[in-house]
């Protein structure tokens, strides 16, 4: 297990810049999510750490070792792919044992460690099956076992859960987290699913256009985004129109010029809540969804979203005037985008 340091890495594909002076540290034993829209460079960063691409400039260290010119097969990493990429011509046990056989650990040792890995991912009885005879979730586990059985220094996951359906995905998230804790391996995880990133990781890095926008623990990034992009990309944000700023209590952060409120921080009422920030709007829609409900409120032509327990939202006819209130401390302040 090792920490991974990426320092000032730049990578071009042809004339387009995929990574632009990226520096980031992945702590030893941590679970780190790289989050960003498609084309943000998150997969390129992962594949550069893996060694499928060499950076044009900058350095990558895994533990104490400089690896930016070391090819993949010599980096001692484990990687999981979006479509699992199991070897279709081999049994499950042979898939998992492949990396051990390459390392020539010996037949007895290989058998012992394959059995151990199968046990870890709870597939002890399926060693002789072929990948084509497994379900999606089982393939997933085989891919994970194959990636960690060689005890790599770092585990890289490229959107590993995106091919699973919703319930299976939540199960696998918990499973992935359990195994990662048990093995204690430094894990870097690429995803475009923000919820997945928030639940799984202990640190998040948001990328945009090949640059790191913000790095931090999930709660910090969610509550104190550094700019408008981070605020809108991770979670939803209702942006306060400049014409409505007067009279509100807003945080004074240097350079802050745009303000937003998360949908779950808002409350809806026919009167402003005392001691809180409040703005008036027009009720547009009330969407019931069981325990929770979503309201859309028209504020000067743009819709604010409110998410609350359904019983906390008063029954107000669409078109009626309503007040949206929130604690001053819940206001998100970011610099106005240039």
């Amino acid at each position: 297990m090792s920490r991974v340091d990426v320092t000032a890495v730049t990578k071009h594909f042809g004339t387009s810049k995929a990574l632009d002076d990226v520096s980031i540290t992945f702590d030893d034993g941590g679970f780190f999510a790289l989050l960003g829209p498609s084309g943000s460079g998150k997969t390129t960063l992962l594949r550069t750490i893996a060694g499928f691409h060499f950076p044009d400039s900058g350095s990558i260290r895994i533990g104490e070792r400089e690896v930016q010119r070391v090819p993949v097969e010599k980096r001692d990493i484990g990687m999981m792919f979006q479509n699992y990429a199991l070897f279709p011509n081999m049994s499950v046990a042979d898939n998992i044992g492949f990396g051990l056989r390459v390392r020539k650990v010996g037949a007895a040792e290989e058998r012992r460690r394959v059995a151990e890995a199968l046990e870890l991912v709870q597939l002890g009885h399926l060693g002789q099956r072929r990948p084509s005879q497994l379900s999606g979730g089982q393939r997933q586990r085989v891919a994970l076992a194959r990636a960690i059985v060689t005890r790599p220094r770092v585990l890289l996951l490229d959107e590993p859960l995106s091919a699973l359906d919703k319930t299976l995905r939540v199960d696998m998230q918990l499973e992935l987290r359990r195994i990662q804790r048990e093995v204690g391996i430094t894990t870097i995880f690429v995803t475009h699913d923000q919820e997945e990133a928030l639940t799984l990781s202990d640190r998040i890095g948001i990328l945009k256009d090949g640059r790191i926008v913000q790095v931090g623990p999930p709660r910090e990034v969610y509550e104190r985004p550094v700019d408008a992009f981070a605020a809108s990309f991770l979670g939803e944000a209702n942006w306060l129109p400049p014409s409505r700023v007067a009279g509100l209590e807003l945080p004074c952060r240097s350079g802050a010029g745009s303000f937003a409120v998360r949908p779950e921080a808002l409350s809806v009422a026919t009167v402003p809540a005392p001691g809180k920030n409040a703005i008036q709007g027009r009720m547009s829609q009330h969407v019931f969804a069981g325990a929770m409900a979503t309201c859309l409120v028209d504020i000067d032509g743009s819709y604010w979203k409110v998410i609350a327990r359904d019983r906390d939202i008063p029954q107000i006819a669409p078109g009626a005037d309503v007040w949206l209130s929130w604690s001053a401390a819940d206001t998100i302040a970011v610099p106005t985008p240039a």
């Binding site: 893996a50 990493i77 484990g78 990687m79 792919f81 070897f87 492949f98 990396g99 390459v102 990636a147």
Partner: peptide, 18 residues
């Protein structure tokens, strides 16, 4: 043959001949 299969083999240490 899926490129990812080859990438997966490389990631767990397989050389060209393997």
């Amino acid at each position: 043959i899926d490129d990812d299969i080859i990438d997966a083999a490389r990631s767990i240490g397989a050389g060209t001949l393997t």
